[in-house]
Simulated scan of single mutants.
Amino acid sequence: MHYRELTLWRKAMDAAREVYQLAPLLPREETYGMRSQLTRAAASVPANIAEGWSRESEREKAQFLAIAQGSLAETETFLTLCEEIGWFPTADTERLRTLLAEVGKMLTTLRRNFRSHP
C-alpha cells in the first residue's frame, strides 16, 4: 500500500492544510516566528509518516512515526499558545483540534502495533 492511501496520512495532510489556512491570522511580525514554527511542525507530521512508510525495516518505520508524533505534539503546543494569546479564536480551531486528536490516536495505535510485532 502506498502512503497516500493511508487514512492516517490523509488526515495529517488535512490538519496541515488547516494550519496553513489559520496561519494568516497571525500577526505580521510573527511571519518568521510562530507562523514558521507552526507550519513547519504541521507539515512535518504527514512528511514523516510518508518517509517512515517508505522505509524497509519496521524499526525505521517506527522511528519516523515517533518523529511524526513529536511533530504533532509540537503543532498542538503552538496551536494552544496561539489560542491562549488570542491569535486564533477557538471557534476557528475546532476542526483542526479534531483532526489532530484523530491523527494522534492513529499514530499511537500504529506505533504500538510496530512495537508488538518486531
Rank of each mutant, 00 (worst) to 15 (best):
R59T: 03
L99T: 04
R40K: 08
R17H: 12
V45P: 03
G70N: 06
E94D: 08
G33P: 07
A66G: 07
R55I: 05
L107C: 13
E84G: 07
R17L: 13
R97E: 12
P27Y: 11
S116W: 09
F64M: 05
L79K: 01
V19P: 13
L81G: 09
W87F: 15
L72Y: 02
E29G: 14
R115L: 10
Y3L: 04
N48H: 10
L6S: 08
S57Y: 10
D92S: 13
T80S: 06
L38D: 10
L38E: 08
Y20P: 00
E60I: 00
V45D: 05
E29Q: 08
A42K: 05
M106A: 15
E51I: 11
L72E: 02
S54Q: 09
D92E: 09
G70S: 06
A91V: 03
S57G: 14
I85F: 03
M13G: 00
E30P: 15
R111T: 10
A47E: 04
V103C: 04
W9L: 15
M106L: 14
L38A: 12
Q21S: 06
Q69H: 09
P118D: 14
T90D: 11
Q63L: 06
P89K: 05
T75N: 05
P24C: 00
L25M: 08
I67N: 06
Y20M: 15
W87I: 02
V19Q: 15
T98P: 00
P89C: 02
T80N: 03
F78E: 05
G33Y: 02
S44G: 15
L25Y: 12
M34T: 11
I49Y: 13
D92Q: 07
L6P: 15
P24G: 07
R28T: 15
A62C: 08
E30Y: 06
K61A: 01
D92G: 15
C82D: 13
I85M: 03
T77N: 02
T80G: 13
R4W: 13
T98N: 15
E83H: 08
L100K: 14
A23L: 07
G52C: 07
D14W: 09
A23S: 12
